[in-house]
Design a binder for these strands. Structure first.
Lengths: 251, 251
DNA sequence: TCCTGCATAATTGTATACAATTATGCAGGA
DNA sequence: TCCTGCATAATTGTATACAATTATGCAGGA
């Protein structure tokens, strides 16, 4: 592996269009052109994908050397990861990967249940023709992949379905919130979808939500989205995957 | 003002008890003993209190000089403020105080309505005797100050009421979430409470919520807490204070 | 064996130098 | 007057030196 892999070299296609007006849209894009941004994304990816164990210590120099950057961008990325709740920094001591407890997962799903409901409600009121069409295509495609047993594609489509919903609710605050939670439980969710036969069932629920949104029934859409999350959680518990997590606060 | 005001000098009572086990509890405490932490808190305070205008640019050197620290802690604080949504950083350009739109405020209150409801529900299930007693005292005291027209104390007690509720729900995730939102609308809320006669009415609602929690009626507690937020929002709109905000996305 | 205390190493915290990027202001021309 | 282009200044990005703090390992003694 190249020691310089992340280092900026030569003429990257630096985003010149960045203006004050659309910062929030371009945020993630521009982020990737600074070392800090790339370290941040890399570490987040690695933590979520399970490369680092829970409670593992992340050392500035080690990470820096691995990615071919100095400590400064690493430190800044650490500060961000801390606020995202992915690591915990103890002053003068170190940065540790945050553990997710069983209870955390349950709490997140309960919170998400409410917020996905609100999102579906707002989406019903604000969704565009294009978004509706993409959702229909999404559900249709997912049906196909479910029959074929293509779990990878199913997971991808599931992600996309929720993404469209988040966009459609026209609230950048709620969207941001839901994305945060969504990625927070990603390590669990991915496994859940591929295991068991949640895939097809989940897609049926998507279809029902879509129908409610399409018919303009916000109450129903909210209720179905609420239940969709609860079902996802229930399924996860049944699959016993929650046992992957540490039992409690860890003593 | 001393240029060295924030600089660590001599023997601060450095928190030696910090352990991995209770990092999340001590987080805010330990934070205050690093320059970055103090810069972070200072800037957050200043932004929320309105010292900086919306869309005002924050410059690393200027802030650093003002607080008597170098750019490094300032930069790290910036990265955190960005993730808290208080400033926006445009790469190679600058950091700008985030504007809150009218719609943002409405969205936050709607989201909070749901989450405060969930919080009341969980608090009903988990609240301790001590917490119940402090809440009763809180409501009782607030009644007194409402009669006397002590708006400052009322605002303080209102904050505390919600704080106890957040603690009582025994979900550090939900607690964290609600605190974030709570402080996000702090600049609005403070003005709301002191204006109009929302203070007494708000306290009546607190009392009702408290009664529901005490009697173990989680459904009622949730419903009342939902409504409490909606009422707070309605009141704010009526007071016309939302006009303090920029009208829309700002073009 | 087990503990204590201290020297040393490792690690994080902060300041600062230099590089890269962006902003500013002015000369010169249409 | 208004625009363009360039030199220069201002500002952010990154690396690194040094300070402060914490971790480690071992000597010496109970």
């Amino acid at each position: 592996m190249s020691e310089q892999s992340l280092r900026r070299k030569g003429n990257h296609p630096v985003n010149k269009e960045t203006k004050v007006a659309d910062y929030d849209v371009k945020q993630e894009v521009t982020d990737k052109f600074s070392l800090r941004g790339r370290v941040f994304h890399k570490l987040r990816e690695d933590i979520l994908s399970g490369k680092y164990e829970e409670h593992e210590e992340l050392k500035e120099v080690a990470i820096g050397e691995e990615l071919g950057v100095s400590r400064t961008p690493v430190r800044e990325a650490f500060r961000q990861l801390e606020l995202e709740g992915l690591i915990q920094i103890i002053p003068n001591k170190g940065a540790y990967v945050t553990g997710i407890t069983e209870k955390d997962v349950r709490d997140i799903y309960m919170i998400r249940s409410l917020l996905e409901g609100l999102c579906a409600r707002w989406a019903t009121e604000h969704i565009t023709k294009e978004q509706l069409e993409e959702m229909e295509e999404n559900v249709y495609l997912a049906k196909f992949h479910a029959q074929k047993g293509h779990l990878e594609q199913l997971a991808e489509l599931d992600n996309r379905f929720h993404d469209i919903m988040y966009e459609a609710c026209s609230s950048k605050l709620l969207e941001h919130q839901l994305r945060d939670f969504h990625q927070y439980v990603l390590r669990v969710r991915r496994k859940t979808l591929s295991s068991a036969n949640r895939g097809p069932k989940s897609n049926e629920e998507h279809e029902q939500i879509l129908e409610a949104v399409k018919s303009g029934d916000a109450d129903l859409a909210e209720k179905l989205a609420n239940q969709h999350m609860i079902n996802a959680y229930e399924n996860m518990v049944q699959s016993g995957l929650h046992e992957l997590f540490q039992k409690d606060k860890q003593k």
